[in-house]
Design a protein around this nucleic acid. Sequence first.
RNA 1: GGGCCAUUAGCUCAGACGGUAGAGCACCUGACUUUUAAUCAGGGUGUCGGUGGUUCGAGUCCACCAUGGCUCACCA
Length: 506
Amino acid sequence: MSEQGKKTVANGKEQISPEEELNDLMLVRREKLTELRDKGIEPYGGRYERTYMAGDILANFEKLENEHVVVAGRIMSKRGMGKASFAHIQDATGQIQIYARLNDIGQPAYELFGKLDIGDIIGVTGKVFKTRMGEITVATEDLKLLSKSLRPLPEKWHGLKDVELRYRQRYVDLIVNPEVKVVFEARSKIVRAVRSYLDNRGFLEVETPMMHAIAGGAAARPFITYHNTLDMKLFLRIAPELYLKRLIVGGFEKVYEINRNFRNEGISTKHNPEFTMLELYQAYADYDDMMNLTEELVANVAFEVFGTTKIEYQGTQIDLSPKWTRLPMLDAVKLHSGIDFGVIKTAEEAKNAVKQAKIGLEIDPAESWGSILNKVFEEVVEPRLIQPTFIMDYPVEISPLAKRKAENPELTYRFELFIYGREMANAFSELNDPIDQKGRFLKQVEKRSAGDEEAHMMDEDYITALEYGMPPAGGLGIGIDRLVMLLTNSPSIRDVILFPLMRPRD
RNA sequence: GGGCCAUUAGCUCAGACGGUAGAGCACCUGACUUUUAAUCAGGGUGUCGGUGGUUCGAGUCCACCAUGGCUCACCA
């Protein structure tokens, strides 16, 4: 592609080595920069005191007509008409037109205005008026260049469409595609609403380590890093779960953390290697409480940020108003596949039943009853869960941190939330029996040594913590990026992450 | 990692059959004192993602590579 990012400027003078090429558009801007300096105009200004934002002037024209205002922003378009010119400048609130007339500002200022490029950042003092065509405009009285732009912006009409460039150069995307900003503003509001919901209910926000000696709390391949002076391998965390539960042991009864997790796995429209997770734990609660909390939290956030709990995602109406369907996994699988895992007791029977059901599913010979059940579920049920649905009671083999059901120890008090066929939340009544927990870890360790890189690691200190006694507790994890995707109608996780991971160029 | 698709000017995109690369915006020169996708007159600014190959001749055909998108696998 282009030679972007290769130019250097030192001591205000251009230092372009021979192999580096500036295209004509950029050369012209460098020349203008030199010209400005020669005239004694500093192209990179400092503090500039504004009196109004563009949006405020547009919203309060009646009050501000004929008033003097000071605005600042980036030039987004420019129309010269000889001895008068128009431009639009853009600040955080939007765009406003400015008007400059030779007679009003004099020869030197008008010449400067003429030299300005789209992309330059300027400050303007002037009087608010409405043009003949009815557009609210600032008639320039004084003009100051605040930052000279040396690169051309993308086209004013089509904006920047190349998705690769949009993600790599998000700053350009944000300048020229106003709808992108709206999504990230919404993301911020959503996260704020989540926090305020939890804060109002007595939850304490905490921060636990991102660098773990043992990557626990989830089944995933971790990123590995290294600490020099300790001479030790560290993992970027795949989940904060085990630390948060240590805090429950310690006597905090309601805690949460909203922060990044890192998983060394595939990248897709639903996966970024680093993603934001909400995890919360509540002592003396269980997974029923977590279901109530989840639906109330999500519905409240939607209402607070968007004023409604009925949303549209990619053309599908989704109703987030509580109560949501609660369906045991066994019932869901029976309903959609006809296979009744309630009467199937062994992996062997399960394999045969899957074969007979002809759902086109390949089952590995080594798979257990529980993982076969989960496979069938994912294949047959998951894609159909469009409206918010809690799927309850996951098999114990795939839920090593969840409490067993009293009436069926092969299942756990665990649920996952699905919306639009996607997993949005995962929660359970936490396993607080240290001996059972140790056994579960040992099973995971076996799987690990059998080559399963995603199996949990043994965490002795976590067992120790449980041995001190952890109150019964409910725990919940919600993928914030996916929640934001849903609420902002974004098709890709990259649309809700400002700087998604990309392979470096060159 | 597999499959499919894409990559042409700063941006958005055209380029049947292989014949020496185009448009709009942006930019440059000039005109224009309420324009607004301003207008009018002139100007094409390019390693056609890269490297090889086929061919008299490659943006176009072939191979490999790079980056990205979608999708499958894995996961949240």
